[in-house]
Design a protein around this nucleic acid. Sequence first.
DNA 1: TCCGATTTCATCGTATGCGCTTGAATTACC
DNA 2: GGTAATTCAAGCGCATACGATGAAATCGGA
Lengths: 148, 148
Amino acid sequence: MTKSPAPERPKLGEFLCFAVYSANLAFGRAYRPILEKLGLTYTQYVALVALWERDDQTVSELGEKMFLESNTLTPILKKLEQSGFIERRRDPADERQVRIRLTAKGSELRNHEIGNELFDATGLGDSFFDVQKSVAKLRDNLMRSLGD
Amino acid sequence: MTKSPAPERPKLGEFLCFAVYSANLAFGRAYRPILEKLGLTYTQYVALVALWERDDQTVSELGEKMFLESNTLTPILKKLEQSGFIERRRDPADERQVRIRLTAKGSELRNHEIGNELFDATGLGDSFFDVQKSVAKLRDNLMRSLGD
DNA sequence: TCCGATTTCATCGTATGCGCTTGAATTACC
DNA sequence: GGTAATTCAAGCGCATACGATGAAATCGGA
C-alpha cells in the first residue's frame, strides 16, 4: 500500500510493499554469487543460520523462525541433507516429528563470515540497525494482523 | 548480513536481509486474499500499477521498473493477457519489441483502492514514509553495487 | 550491400513459496 | 479402550525468480 490518503494515481515508487519486494530481489542477487561458491541457495543459508542459533530443531520449530510451512521447508531440508549439511531423523519419542541436526560440514560454515561484505553494499551506514528494526517490526505487525 | 563487526554467532533476528525476506513473505500473505478476489497475483498487480503510471510500455521498460527480466516477466504478462487485463503486441516499427497496453478491464481496476486497508496493518504510523524511503534506498544501493 | 554483433523477447531447467490435500502418529474425550 | 480430533510432515499443482540459452530482428562497419 502507499499511504492513508491515497493519491489518485498510486505510483510504484511510493509503495512500501514494492520497496520491500524489490529490496528482497536485490538481496537475493547480492547473496547468490557468494552462496553459490558454498553450494547453498539463500533459503538454505537461512535454515543453516537458524540451526547455528539452536541445533536439533523440528521442522515446525524451524518453520516458525523462518516463517515457512513444512510444505516449503521439507524440500529445502532434503536438499540440505543431500548436500551433507544437515541430518533429518524422525524423533523416536514422537514419530510425527522430524528432527534436524547439523552435520560437521554444516557446523563448519558458521565461521565463514558469509554476508559481512554486503554491509557496505547496503549503503545505510549507522542507520543500518534502525532500518533492520523497523522492517522486522513491520513484518511482525503484518504477520500479527494475519493471525487475528 | 548483520553488522560490520560480526558477532561470534550471528542470529537470524539481526539480519537485515532476513527482515526484508520475511517482511516480503508477510506482504505477500496480506495481499493474497485481497488480490485473489480480483483474480490477480501480487506480481501481476505490480505490473498493472506500473502500467497505470504509464501505459504502452515494452517488456524491457516494464522490467526496468519492476526489476525483472523478460524470462520472468513474459509468462506473467501472458497470464495478464489471458485474463484480459492487458494486450501484448509486437511493435510494427521494431518487431523485436512487444508493447504492453492496458485493456479497458485493466484500466478500471485503477480505482479499486486495493492495498489501502493494509496501511494500518503495517503498524508504522508516521514512520511509514521514512521506512519506505529507507528500504527503497537500500534496494537502490544494493542494485547499484551489483552493476559495477 | 553484406555479414557479424547487438538487442529483444522467449524457452528451459532449477529453486522457492503457498494453498490444498493426504497419511501417519498422537492426543483427547467419552 | 476405542473412536474422533488434532498434529505433523510430505505430496501436488500453480506462480514466481533467475541463469543459461535460443531465435528473430535490427544495427553497423567494412
